[in-house]
């Protein structure tokens, strides 16, 4: 397996955005629940999967996961099985959903990719939290609903806005300067 320069750079920069959203706390949207914040740090991972394919999604997810392990925002993230492993799947799921629905409608595919990517994060992380015994099942479930739903909505909207914006600058750059 070898990685093209394009894949290396894009995964790196998307990973950087994910870390940035974490360290500035900007990636945490205040939700009125006991656990505090909904996250949007996984959105760069979804974008990586949708725009550049599963490999970039996987690597960006790994960077996101590694960061949330090394600089954990919540105590149970200090366990690589909770913080790193589930994040590897976000980009891959987003990519698969996008590719399989793209031919129906591009915007619908983006909404679904964002929503499923986000749901993957919520379900797998909380699943691991429960399996590893950090929180009882009922608490995980209520966090899943209280956080997962706003995260899912924000992720779906942001994925559409951001991918459309990025696709627009890409097509305008491909065009010859004099038209």
């Amino acid at each position: 397996m070898s990685l093209s320069v394009r894949k290396i750079v894009i995964s790196g920069i998307l990973g950087a955005i994910s870390i940035l959203l974490g360290v500035t706390r900007l990636g945490f949207i205040p939700v009125p629940t006991p656990a505090g914040h909904a996250t949007i740090m996984h959105i760069p991972v979804i974008l990586g999967g949708v725009l550049e394919g599963p490999v970039v999604g996987l690597i960006t997810g790994a960077i996101f996961g590694l960061f949330s392990f090394l600089q954990p925002g919540a105590p149970f993230f200090a366990d690589p099985l909770v913080s790193v492993l589930p994040r590897l799947f976000i980009g891959i799921v987003a990519y698969l959903i996008y590719v399989s629905t793209k031919n129906i409608n591009n915007i619908l595919a983006l909404v679904l990719a964002g929503a499923f990517g986000s749901a993957t994060n919520t379900a797998l992380v909380l699943g691991m939290v429960t399996l590893r015994g950090y929180l009882p099942f009922e608490v995980s479930l209520s966090i899943g609903i209280l956080h997962g739903v706003p995260e899912l909505i924000v992720a779906a909207i942001l994925t559409v806005i951001l991918v459309k914006g990025i696709q627009r600058i890409r097509t305008s750059e491909d065009r010859p300067p004099v038209s």
């Binding site: 070898s2 920069i13 940035l20």
Partner: peptide, 20 residues
Amino acid sequence: PSQELVMTMIIALRFVLILA
């Protein structure tokens, strides 16, 4: 591809401050 993966990680670390 270990070198490429390290490069990715370094780009991420480096760009955090630039993007901030």
